[in-house]
Simulated scan of single mutants.
Amino acid sequence: MRNLMAGLRALALIGPAMASPAFAAPDVTGTWMTEDGEGAVQIAPCGDRLCGRIVWLKTPLDENGQPMRDENNADLSQRDRPLCGMEVLSGVAPGRDGWEGGWIYDPEAGARYSVAIAPGEEDAIVVTGFVGMKAFGRALQWHRAPASLKRCDAPPAPAKASAGNKRS
Rank of each mutant, 00 (worst) to 15 (best):
M1S: 14
M1H: 10
R2S: 14
N3R: 12
A6T: 13
A6N: 11
G7W: 08
L8E: 01
R9E: 13
L11H: 02
L11G: 11
A12G: 15
P16V: 10
P16L: 13
A17Y: 02
A17G: 05
M18A: 15
A19K: 13
S20W: 01
P21W: 02
A22T: 11
A24W: 00
A25E: 03
P26C: 08
V28K: 01
T29L: 02
T31W: 04
M33F: 11
M33K: 12
M33V: 09
E35C: 03
D36V: 04
D36N: 15
D36L: 09
G37R: 02
G37F: 05
A40E: 06
V41K: 07
V41S: 09
I43K: 01
D48K: 12
I54E: 05
I54V: 15
W56L: 08
W56E: 05
K58H: 12
P60I: 05
L61E: 08
L61Q: 09
N64Q: 15
G65V: 07
R69C: 03
D70P: 02
N72L: 08
Q78R: 14
Q78D: 11
R79V: 09
D80M: 05
P82E: 12
P82G: 01
L83T: 04
C84Q: 08
M86K: 06
M86N: 02
V88H: 03
L89F: 15
G91A: 06
P94S: 10
G95V: 02
D97I: 01
E100I: 00
G102T: 03
G102M: 05
W103C: 02
I104W: 03
P107G: 11
E108R: 14
A111K: 15
Y113N: 06
Y113I: 04
V115H: 02
V115F: 04
I117Q: 05
A118P: 00
A118Y: 00
G120Q: 04
V126A: 11
V126N: 13
T128A: 09
T128K: 05
F130V: 06
F130D: 07
V131Q: 09
V131K: 13
M133D: 12
A135W: 03
A135L: 15
A135E: 10
F136H: 01
L140S: 14
L140R: 14
W142R: 09
R144Q: 14
A145V: 07
P146G: 15
L149A: 10
C152K: 04
C152R: 03
D153R: 02
D153Q: 04
D153C: 11
K160I: 10
S162N: 08
A163T: 06
G164S: 11
N165A: 15
